[in-house]
Nucleic acid binder design. Structure first.
Lengths: 256, 256
DNA sequence: TCCGCGATTATGTATAGACAATTGGATGCG
DNA sequence: CGCATCCAATTGTCTATACATAATCGCGGA
């Protein structure tokens, strides 16, 4: 009972914390411990690995923070939902990304108008039809070349000061992010063929594949903004990196 | 200097850990500490909050794990880049997703062979050229219609039993996931125009936009598998949902 | 001047112990 | 038997300490 851990992968000279975590994760991911299965108590793991409670506590707390297990006082810990693959996509700021790669970033506002929501858009974002929104179309230029075409709607009820903003220094996305932190976001990624308008603005052939990222953000339940950003598929892609059980920083990078 | 923290939000009867974390997060999010700004050293925070090093260490480690700060030995911690939007895409199992929507899922293996890595693939995945891999091409059918075209490489050094697997019950992805839990993954999402082969298999016109998801997974540093899954852009998209503040489990959903 | 190397400093990991908070189960009372 | 109460098990947070590890800084020698 007070035995060494079962699975010690070949080159197991990692840190104790990592080893315990790998063991438990492996058992959960492999299905050996199905959802609902009770994870050993902290004092049991202490005995099994011959370590202090702080160490196993850190492991289990991290697993809980990552959604792999659920913990309850007195009742112990149980395995939560099974292994869905989760990829973290980090969507960078255009200007930041350009600075990082030594490129020059500029943008041009193609259209800017206060409009009223039509019914399809209203349904999509969950506001009443006819609500006032600011509609902004922006083209993002990296070293003078079009890098993305952005169509954005901003809820003027939530961000009234946007109606008087000309977006000369920062593009709408950056401006908004600084003004209104969001608490929830929904993303959709699609592939489309460029139509004539897109092709013209992105310097593509009509029909070329483009990556479309749609993002809708809310703050505490109120809709803030919807952005549809179209990237030339040939020149850009999204990159994500993920370690399932988390402590490993889900680092990532996205060419915006 | 050994003073109480500056910002104590109104009802500050939380735990010390949470209070320190909220303080630092607030200063980062508000821009008071811009990217690159040096976060106080652990011993400085100890003095400021009058607590032990373990407590501030846990705060800073968590912030680092969440990507808010970057830590380096001897140099200290600095505020990481702001305004990265991180979207969590959850990539579901085909069969699971089909069951959820009441569709019938089937798959067909188009190609299956033990091969040796050519140099470009070897470089991409970080194995020596010439390593033995199993190459499998699968077509996924939803209600009889092609839903995705999958090209997969499996590292036979890591999963030798794959060489004798015919994949009759489960498609390669599901089979692998059950056998070998992964600990790291890298994802790339792109848009491409369908070539003739893709068009034929996915019932598309040549040139139609397709969404390509490339995933490479590792377990404890050893490469497991690479999958390139191509979806008809018109019929499928990826959906993600995310709450930024970290602790809250990022939930999401993806139509595979 | 430049390079290598050690000293210093900050973080990374781990220990042992302590007390608080929550809650499932046992106990005892009406 | 039903219900309130107490107890004990388990997790949550924190302290104080120790040693390992990495990296910068500055010193000394070539």
């Amino acid at each position: 009972m007070t035995e060494a851990p079962l699975k010690v992968p070949a080159g197991a000279k990692q840190h104790l914390y990592q080893r315990i975590r790998d063991d438990i994760e492996a058992r959960i991911m492999s299905g050996e411990w199905p959802p609902g299965h009770r994870v050993p108590f902290e004092h049991e793991l202490m005995a099994e690995y011959g370590c202090s409670r702080m160490t196993v506590n850190k492991v289990l707390s991290t697993l809980a923070a990552n959604g792999l297990i659920t913990r309850r006082r007195r009742a112990g810990s149980v395995v939560a939902e099974p292994s869905k693959e989760r990829a973290v996509l980090e969507i960078q700021d255009f200007a930041f990304d350009a600075a990082r790669t030594g490129s020059i970033y500029r943008f041009r506002i193609l259209h800017r108008a206060v409009e009223r929501l039509d019914s399809t858009a209203a349904q999509r974002i969950g506001l009443p039809a006819g609500s006032q929104v600011l509609s902004v179309v922006t083209i993002h230029l990296i070293d003078g070349l079009p890098g993305a075409y952005e169509e954005r709607l901003i809820n003027l009820a939530a961000v009234p000061e946007a109606s008087e903003e000309a977006f000369v220094g920062d593009p709408p996305g950056t401006w908004l992010l600084r003004r209104v932190p969001w608490t929830d976001a929904e993303h959709i990624v699609r592939a489309v063929n460029a139509d004539r308008t897109l092709a013209r603005h992105l310097h593509l052939q009509s029909g070329d594949a483009c990556l479309v990222l749609e993002r809708r953000t809310w703050q505490a339940g109120t809709f803030i903004t919807e952005a549809r950003i179209t990237y030339p598929g040939s020149r850009h892609h999204l990159v994500g990196r993920f370690s399932p059980a988390g402590q490993g920083t889900p680092t990532g990078l996205a060419v915006p």
